[in-house]
């Protein structure tokens, strides 16, 4: 309630600020900044914006031999097809669940891992750990899929252990809910080491004297973690988290494609695997493009939304 009352006030002050800012920006001060941005802006224009013309295919019945200009326009036909497709609700839902879990835990796990690693005083141990956990990132899912299928199969190592413990075998890849679990965990496992690096970089920017001062004040290590370590990483965590929202409808094609099977279609089929089967295999580029466009739009909306949220309530610009 309180925030709702304060809102108009906040808005008006921020508007006032904006006006002030506008008068303050001077070409004489900012031209070097514009110049610095120029090369990247041009490269982006050529290699990202020019090819974006291909998005036109989403509204066409694209035939390779007619080309992008010659193909027939069919308006929103592909989008209609997508939403009327009997399976699409289930597939979108699967994607949201799998991808949502990956985003949340994909952020939390490296964050916590970086904190744990920060508590390690033995430099050699720290480095070895850092290097080893970063390795799985480099194994492709073709290989990893084969290894996992093997390990998680009915007679794989994992189920042998579970059987030995009297728990009984678990259908990791052959039952829908377990499949989602397996997919999320193995994805986190593959990437947390790599994603930790960026947090470690943030931590190495922390001035050691802060910890020393805190210690003199008698703060416990836990308090230091909360008040020094975590604040140093949060801005990066917010950025990484927000940007990954753009991927909310990418469930991880390579992984799912290499792990799924007809027993888990109902809970494991995601948008990209679905598009692969319906469109890519048949060379129906326009349907693939239309679905891609839809995914991007949702991603954009989420990013804009969280950006505005952060700015409105915390006065913080994520980007």
């Amino acid at each position: 309630m309180e925030s709702a009352i304060n809102e108009p006030l906040k808005q008006s002050t921020s508007q006032a600020n904006k006006q002030l800012n506008r008068s303050r920006e001077k070409w004489s001060r900012t031209w070097p900044l514009h110049l610095m941005l120029l090369p990247a802006a041009i490269a982006t224009f050529i290699f990202a914006y020019v090819p974006m013309s291909g998005l036109i295919m989403a509204f066409q019945d694209f035939k390779p031999y007619d080309g992008m200009l010659g193909s027939k326009f069919i308006g929103m036909e592909h989008f209609r097809f997508m939403f009327e497709y009997p399976d699409s609700k289930q597939v979108i839902w699967n994607t949201l669940i799998i991808s949502g879990l990956k985003i949340v835990f994909g952020l939390i796990v490296p964050f916590v891992f970086a904190i744990l690693l920060n508590e390690v005083r033995k430099m050699l141990f720290k480095r070895v750990v850092q290097t080893l956990v970063y390795l799985p990132h480099f194994i492709s899912w073709v290989i990893l899929g084969a290894i996992l299928t093997d390990m998680l199969g009915s007679e794989g190592v994992v189920n042998q252990v579970l059987n030995g413990l009297g728990i009984g075998a678990i259908p990791w890849l052959m039952e829908g809910d377990w499949f989602r679990f397996t997919v999320v965990v193995s994805d986190i496992w593959q990437n947390f080491g790599f994603n930790t690096i960026v947090f470690l970089a943030a931590l190495s920017g922390v001035n050691p004297s802060l910890y020393e001062a805190a210690e003199v004040d008698g703060a416990t290590r836990w308090k230091q973690t909360i008040h020094i370590t975590m604040p140093a990483m949060i801005p990066i965590a917010v950025v990484v988290g927000t940007l990954s929202l753009g991927n909310i409808l990418n469930g991880g094609f390579d992984q799912i494609f290499n792990l799924y099977n007809s027993l888990v279609y109902d809970k494991g089929d995601i948008i990209d695997t679905f598009v692969y089967r319906t469109a890519i295999l048949n060379g129906q580029y326009s349907f693939g493009t239309a679905v891609g466009l839809f995914k991007s739009l949702i991603g954009l909306i989420l990013i804009v939304f969280s950006y505005r949220l952060a700015f409105k309530y915390a006065g913080y610009r994520i980007f």
Binding site: L20, R22, R24, T30, H34, Y285
Partner: peptide
């Protein structure tokens, strides 16, 4: 933003390409 107001335009100009691609 106070000092370099156009930065928002640039930021979104770049961010947009992270999401949309023509294939």
């Amino acid at each position: 933003n106070g000092m370099f107001r156009s930065r928002s335009v640039y930021t979104w100009y770049f961010l947009f390409t992270m999401l949309f691609s023509g294939g």
